[in-house]
Design a protein around this nucleic acid. Structure first.
Lengths: 341, 341
DNA sequence: GTGAAAGCGCTAACAT
DNA sequence: ATGTTAGCGCTTTCAC
């Protein structure tokens, strides 16, 4: 049923080895006439090499895994941000002749299994907690080259790419401070002493220091969802009467907050300014259009892939994660601090 | 470097076959004591089965390809709708112990190659033109089980799932007609005599027939993007002065149109009502919230997977594509036709 | 420039 | 209940 190398060889009256060489462009080892003949017969027969057989023989697969955390019964790629990256990574890999195995990982142990069972040449970790990334050892990942996106783990086995979270948050806070705001709220998910959110918090604080403004130490902890954002927006005025601006660690969250605020009768940006993070397409679709920190997602994805392929094909491994620049995109959700009535 | 079945067998003092049976849960063929011992040693050694070797031996891979069209240099998954489906499909496959190979396909020929080279057990075609799906033959797909999502091709090799596009568009038009609208514009991408958009157009027309209202035959052709929607919205009043409502074949398009209209000073829904299609999260985030036809994406994805696995594991093949119900979600972008001034 | 032999890690089919 | 044999389709030596 399946056309094999052997069949092509028999039809062409040559050995399997010759066919193999032709198929792999090893043209130096075969005469032009033979190349043409073998090629023709392979096409006629509709020969397609077996990736498993080749992988078994060479111990390389040209397969890269993209691992994304996913609760057991849950669909992965909850955030639009994650989804966008997946698409970009697929394109980059395809460009270089690699294939993508997309895998949701419920339990950390599955990482090791996923990596090794398919003889992946490499893997990209997307959206994992730094703690989980940190736990990966040579033993668990074997010979698989791994790159983590958005991780601040010091694990040298996984150095990858991330946006400049610190600078981004500082930019956001600076913008708000420039507009005269002083009581600025930081809204994001719970964070520890390391990681994306922590970096953003540090950058946020740095802007106050740079400006010589005492830090108000106003923090709200919520999950990164529209729904939780909206709920917070609904009660924000009651909870923080003096606040005139806020920075949310994700656009989807910021949009939820803005809607909650609006429902509660708080005008954005007249009564309260809001800055998000990510620069999703969504920012342009909502009213008011969201001022946000732009992450260069395409760049983050393509850089991650090129680091990975450099590691796979040439054994290169950067000592430091690559930081992708961010920028502030001013839209309509921020305005000068309202003058006291 | 890699721990093999043989090593585990040697360490445990049994044959490879016994280890194989233990690993595959073929517990009937092995004594309890042996099972325990083999299991322990395998764990100690960190044994992970080689998928390529297994695949080569069994001619099955537990791998399913998800094929999505993608221009050569382009990132795939342009639409939010597509992205959502990808996530759902991954979860379903994982639930049943399958893995997902995500592949953007630039040239139709690549479909065949993608399908066969990895010995995929099956594949899901997402977002392909009916014409391309129709061209697939036993010869090109080999023994791979294939299911197409959102295809109206009559190809029996690819019967899959799709939303009830006809009913959805009819629902949208009925809603608008009920509100008293008569001059209703249909906005969507170019379409031929078969396919998703064609079905929606037919359903749209059907509602007029059912209501005994002459069909106004108002159609605008645009690509399904926010940008093109917005451009249309900007000039809509000038182009179609008498129109009081419109139906767009996608939410993202509808949102663009609403924004264009708003910028041009046309109030939605007071001056003009708008209905979309898809029911993306986005509908709730925009102002006014978008009235739309809800597709049950989760259902569409899980049904596609279950059809595929039924085909792979039990040779079942539905004669007819499975149609997923849709429903109208009324939000804020539709209102009764404005009374003549 | 071309070919034969051996083996990658696993499993199906048959022994025992 | 366990072991043996013979491949799956390909590539890697090493010979010619």
């Amino acid at each position: 049923m399946r056309v094999t190398l052997r069949e092509v060889a028999e039809q062409a009256g040559v050995s399997m080895m010759t066919v193999s060489n032709v198929m792999n462009g090893n043209r130096a080892r075969v005469s032009p006439g033979t190349i043409e003949k073998v090629q023709r017969i392979a096409d006629e027969l509709g020969y397609v090499p077996s990736a498993s057989a080749r992988s078994l023989a060479t111990k390389a697969s040209r397969l890269v895994g993209l691992l994304v955390p996913a609760a057991d019964e849950d669909s992965l790629m909850i955030s639009p941000h994650t989804m966008a990256i997946v698409g970009m990574i697929e394109r980059e890999l395809r460009k270089y002749g690699y294939h993508l195995l997309l895998r949701g990982v419920a339990h950390p142990d599955e990482v090791a299994e996923a990596l090794r069972s398919w003889s992946l040449d490499g893997a990209i970790l997307l959206g994992f907690l730094d703690e989980e990334v940190g736990k990966l050892t040579k033993k668990t990942i074997g010979a698989v080259h791994v790159v983590a996106i958005d991780s601040y783990s010091a694990n040298r086995l996984t150095t990858g790419t991330r946006s400049d979270d610190f600078a981004g948050a500082r930019l956001a806070a600076e913008h708000l401070l420039d507009l005269g705001h002083r009581r600025i709220l930081f809204v994001g998910p719970a964070f520890s002493g390391v990681g994306v959110v922590h970096e953003r918090f540090e950058g946020f604080c740095q802007a106050f220091d740079d400006a010589g403004v005492p830090h108000p130490d106003l923090v709200e902890t919520v999950n990164t969802t529209y729904a939780e954002g909206r709920e917070l927006g609904l009660v924000l005025r009651a909870r923080h009467s003096g606040v005139t601006a806020l920075f949310a660690t994700a656009d989807i969250l910021a949009v939820g907050i803005v809607h909650g605020l609006t429902e509660a009768g708080v005008q954005v940006p007249d009564d309260l300014s809001v800055v998000g993070f990510d620069n999703l397409d969504l920012c342009d679709y909502v009213t008011p259009k969201l001022t946000t920190v732009s992450q260069d997602i395409a760049r983050k994805a393509s850089t991650a892939v090129s680091i990975l392929l450099g590691s796979i094909e040439r054994g290169e491994r950067p000592k430091q994660p690559v930081t992708i620049d961010v920028s502030l995109v001013e839209r309509e959700s921020t305005a000068p601090v309202p003058s006291a009535p």
